[in-house]
Simulated assay, not measured.
Amino acid sequence: MNFKPLGDSALLVSFGEIIDEKTNDKIHSLAKAIEKASFEWLIEVVPAYSSLAVMYDAALIDFEGVKRAIGELEFSAERFEGKLVEIPVVYGSSYGPDLEFVAQYNGLTPDEVIEIHSKPVYRVYFLGFLPGFAYLGGMDERIATPRLEKPRLKVPAGSVGIAGKQTGIYPLESPGGWRIIGRTPLRLFNPEKEPPTLLQPGDRVKFVPIDEEEFLRLYREEWVDD
């Protein structure tokens, strides 16, 4: 484990720069161990791909004290796996305006992009950027595509995008520079539910292609009839 300060009331615990499931398992196992220890100075732990941010009360402890406490914890990197969530997606047309570009950029047809994108079972490494925005691992590099040079001012909630070697889903309408290839009718963030986010770290995600008729039916159930 490598430690470095984040301001005067947080530190970052890192396990290197490699993004893989084993490293992420270590991160979540350490996060559980820290939370289980119930340190009085602990405010919050925030996991990422291969690092963990630990927020603490600087009036009760300093960086060296937190570093020492975490270093003394015993934990094992257990397999971190949550539920399997199927995400229906209508690909292309107005729902996925960048599908054609992704296909052309990678020398593929739009149907091939859809097949490649919907084949894997992705892992939710962590949530960030927006409430419920899941950073997914496991995308096939054959459809890796750079971000837009100029981000869009509005990306609809549910938009499924590609940025470099990553894929993700916008849980809320927001600006964004990911290449949008489709859209899901599911509601990924609902503050009236507990938990408010559909996806959690460790969950597995499977994209399922649907047609526009099915999209509209599910959209009414999720957003209109709710």
Results as ranks from 00 to 15, higher is better:
126 F>Q: 05
157 A>Y: 01
208 V>F: 02
142 R>D: 01
86 E>T: 15
117 H>P: 07
204 R>T: 01
87 I>K: 02
88 P>R: 03
153 L>V: 15
118 S>G: 12
191 P>R: 15
154 K>M: 09
176 G>S: 11
126 F>L: 09
119 K>E: 14
153 L>C: 00
135 Y>R: 09
114 I>K: 09
87 I>S: 01
169 I>Y: 12
155 V>R: 10
145 T>H: 11
123 R>T: 09
170 Y>A: 03
188 L>Q: 04
189 F>D: 02
132 G>D: 07
176 G>T: 09
119 K>A: 15
149 E>V: 14
126 F>E: 02
171 P>E: 08
208 V>Y: 01
100 E>A: 14
202 G>P: 11
206 K>A: 00
138 G>C: 03
120 P>V: 14
186 L>D: 02
136 L>D: 03
93 S>I: 01
187 R>A: 09
99 L>Y: 04
147 R>T: 12
154 K>N: 14
168 G>F: 08
149 E>C: 00
148 L>I: 08
181 I>P: 03
170 Y>L: 06
126 F>Y: 14
197 T>A: 13
96 G>M: 02
137 G>Y: 09
101 F>A: 00
177 G>M: 10
101 F>C: 02
164 G>T: 15
122 Y>V: 06
100 E>W: 03
132 G>R: 04
167 T>Y: 01
181 I>C: 01
201 P>I: 05
164 G>C: 08
202 G>Y: 01
89 V>M: 06
176 G>H: 06
160 V>H: 06
158 G>Q: 04
187 R>Y: 00
113 V>L: 10
139 M>I: 12
